[in-house]
Write a protein that binds this DNA or RNA. Structure first.
Lengths: 164, 164
DNA sequence: GAACAATAACTGAGCAGTCAGGTATCTGGG
DNA sequence: CCCAGATACCTGACTGCTCAGTTATTGTTC
């Protein structure tokens, strides 16, 4: 037992393997989001959250996505989505249209500028991630890691309720 | 190729393996933080960030930790640390003392209530994490996952500058 | 088909962080 | 020794979210 693992009530309670791993998971996620978010901000003028929204809108294509779908994909309240889309619309990245199938709803879709920005941002983002991460683990570790993460992602998503 | 993987400029640019994995990493982290954060809030009256601070203060022990060390451990500006510790001090979880070795600095340490809360929160937190995660992956996957995460954590931490 | 609950999006108020700028203290070179 | 620059923390103004409450529309039940 090393010097910084001595006994202490708060200390010993904390040193649970899962708790520590979880702390690291959040730490890695926070720091990576900081790093790539800063780059996206500077090079493309968008936050990382906006980038994620550009991606899911790009995947959705067609007539667009409901606000509520965006709130479920990212973890946001409806108020948060409204304001996020407000800013993205003001920046010319997306546009809102009435949903012909439900007059309460709005459909959000990419503008040409939004699509263009998504492509530009992805190139930057991908290079950034490769530079930060690719050499840190051997390729087969990455494959396993990605697969495990996929499993976790599905499991955890089910536990999160829809936010209002 | 399935229906939702058709060609499209924003779409094809996005489907980079690393970008998708990164998105999932952040998604899992966000959702888990939401779930365990909500439980901590309800049961112990603290945010997950406060919990992390209680942990590192518990590990540090002794005369306490400088504000700047807290800002480095979590990714926070000095202003953010000041306000976070303000709230924690108001809640009686920590206390500030002058640093005898540097009259600019303050040392932050746990109060008895803070130590007690750290223990109580950890029990809850650990059980929550087990319930959410333990059965999702076989044990040896967890070991590999935790180890890879440890490597990533060290690599990424070096890239994040100190915030002001 | 009228009443009632549920749902989609929006809004005002509040809160937790950032950013930029301030003061007090420390440190190292001339 | 002293002064310039770095460092530690704090503060005012701002931002981006949440929360709770509102309106408009949809689905449901009798």
């Amino acid at each position: 037992m090393s010097a910084d693992e001595q006994i202490g009530s708060a200390r010993e309670a904390a040193e649970d393997e899962l708790v520590v791993t979880f702390g690291r998971l959040l730490g890695v996620a926070n720091r990576l989001e900081f790093l790539v978010g800063r780059a996206l901000e500077q090079e493309c003028g968008i936050s990382h959250l906006m980038y994620e929204v550009l991606l899911i809108l790009g995947r959705a294509g067609g007539p667009g996505l409901a606000m509520s779908a965006i709130g479920r994909a990212q973890v946001l309240t409806t108020g948060g989505v409204t304001r996020l889309i407000d800013r993205m619309e003001a920046a010319g990245l997306v546009e809102r249209a009435d949903d012909p199938a439900d007059r309460r709803g709005r459909l959000v879709r990419l503008t040409p500028l939004g699509e263009q920005t998504a492509v530009r941002a992805t190139v930057l983002h991908r290079d950034n991630l490769r530079h930060l991460l690719a050499d840190q683990l051997p390729a087969e570790h990455w494959d396993r890691f990605a697969e495990d993460l996929r499993v976790l992602s599905r499991a955890v998503a089910k536990e999160v309720p829809r936010l209002r």
